[in-house]
Design a protein around this nucleic acid. Sequence first.
RNA 1: GCGCUCGUAGCUCAAUGGAUAGAGUACUGGCCUCCGAAGCCAGGGGUUGUGGGUUCGAUCCCCGCCGAGCGCGCCA
Length: 594
Amino acid sequence: MYSRHGRIQRNPRQTPSTHVSISPGCCAPRCQRRPAQGLADIVLERPKQASHGDFASNLGMQLARELKTNPRQVAERIVRELPCLAFLSRRSRSPAPASINFTLTPAGAQRGGGSGAGRHDGFGRGAAKNGRMARRLQSRDSFPPIPPARCMSATARRAPTAPALASLLGFAGYEVTREYYVNDAGRQMDILAVSAWLRYLELFDEPIPFPPNAYQGGYVREMAEQIKQAHGDRYVHPAEAVLACVPETEDIEARLDGFILAGKDLLGEDWSYVHGHVLSEQLADCRADLEEFGVHFDVWFSERSLYDTGMVARAVEKLEKSGHIYTQDGAKWFQSTAFGDEKDRVVQRENGIYTYFASDIAYHLNKFERGFDKVIDVWGADHHGYIPRVRGALQASGADADKLDVTLVQFVSLFRDGQKVSMSTRSGEYVTLRQLRAEVGNDACRFFYMLRKCDQALDFDLDLAKSQSNDNPVYYVQYAHARICSVLAQWDGDESTLGRADLAPLQHEREFALCARLAEFPELVQAAARDYAPHALAFYLKDLAGDFHSWYNAERVLVDDVATREARLALALATRQVLRSGLALLGVSQPMSM
RNA sequence: GCGCUCGUAGCUCAAUGGAUAGAGUACUGGCCUCCGAAGCCAGGGGUUGUGGGUUCGAUCCCCGCCGAGCGCGCCA
């Protein structure tokens, strides 16, 4: 079963109750999920509308369900019995839904946002998770086979998504390793290598028609030129010899395989040089592209290494021992239907070559062996049909498949001049991540992607993104940050003293609203991490910036009254801190001025 | 045909089974002798594709239909 976030859940969502405790000293409620015990969800939440108070509970409604009585009466009874607390000014049962509402006193509100809260850089950071579940997390970003570089902007949506999720989980208290799975084995890599070789032969005027299904991009010619400059005509073979390996057939895939065969046969040992050069060039380019984008991976895991170390063979052997492998038509099949897949899948072809599926099983088993408590794969949505077989193989191997979560990222459709830009990897007709970054900028690009729930397909109007780049929400958030930097600079005082500022002068509605928003940050981090929803953080930052701008426009910070001035400066400082933390998690810069 | 993911303001997108479904953008009208106007304030905009069901309560859960994207290979 798939959750709405595209994440796999083995069991239908359980209905955990939420235990919330509030104490005057804490800046935000600590939410803790507990297993359901007969009662449905009982929550304490922040109402969407400020007029409904600072917190609201559906306790009355949920109890009424169990007691089979009137929710309003239950709620009224609970409100009557509630003790008086110093930080609560009002407890009420609102008429419509019979929920119980709490409103903080000014002191309570001030404590929430302005105090210790946002004035140190650790605010919002979750405590290290020491439970058995999900202590170490693995965020694996499996990019499609090739081109390893020249990330297309359509698929490259995962580039900002996976690292933002990893950062968020790290900030929430999990120990995270970010890993990029490099598909450096298999036919696609051979196709790229042979594409470069054929372009290389063109440079020596060998009359070989370039296959229509080989990689057409200009970068292939660049690599050919590099090889020529480095090694001259060393890899040149006459067209007749090359074409002799290519079958006369209409099947262009078969012809392409013929070209690959020609390369391997004619070049012999040198084939591995061409192959290796193409791979390292593409990989280096891909890494540079991602680093420029502010996207960093801790581990670059080579698919080929799984073959070199025999892990693929061992993984298949493990499946054979489990009794879920059978041979048919000379190929080895994994009985994935026994685990809910639509059909059984081949792991080793008739010609003895392992499929991509086989190496992927080996990869996941390897990752489990490395001791991760949770493995989060970020895949393109087109791979969704692939999930059942991977989970099935893990189960058959005796691994705990529940440790694997798969987040699917939907595609982006680019529009230019009102027309959808056609994207095709091999044809070379596509907009790269680089081009996209150059057009709209790193920050706008990252924030734009983060502003969407990742399992939502989205349309990206390039002309709009360019012409209205100043209207991009990212500038709205960054502008709030820059404004705060500016006012602090004009104050020209010692920021470290603001941590002790008395917040009592904060008495306006907009100040309470900003405090409440700041106080919400730690909860939001935990919720967004739990749901694998980095977009929630982007929306929060937009809201926070909005609360700040409203307040800043209505109230002057640098007033003559010292107490008021310092309280407001402290609030501004706390806001800046949360903006910084949040933007950094999303990989967006935090400019002092713009 | 089967499977998966979706369908929310003109457009781009939000919304743990909760209150009058929210932002941005676009449009209309206001606000700089004052810490940055990339900002603020106010306004119009909706049968949440559609028809049923469950529930005190459904954008959310279940079923049908319509529409879109993706996947259905001894490719990766």
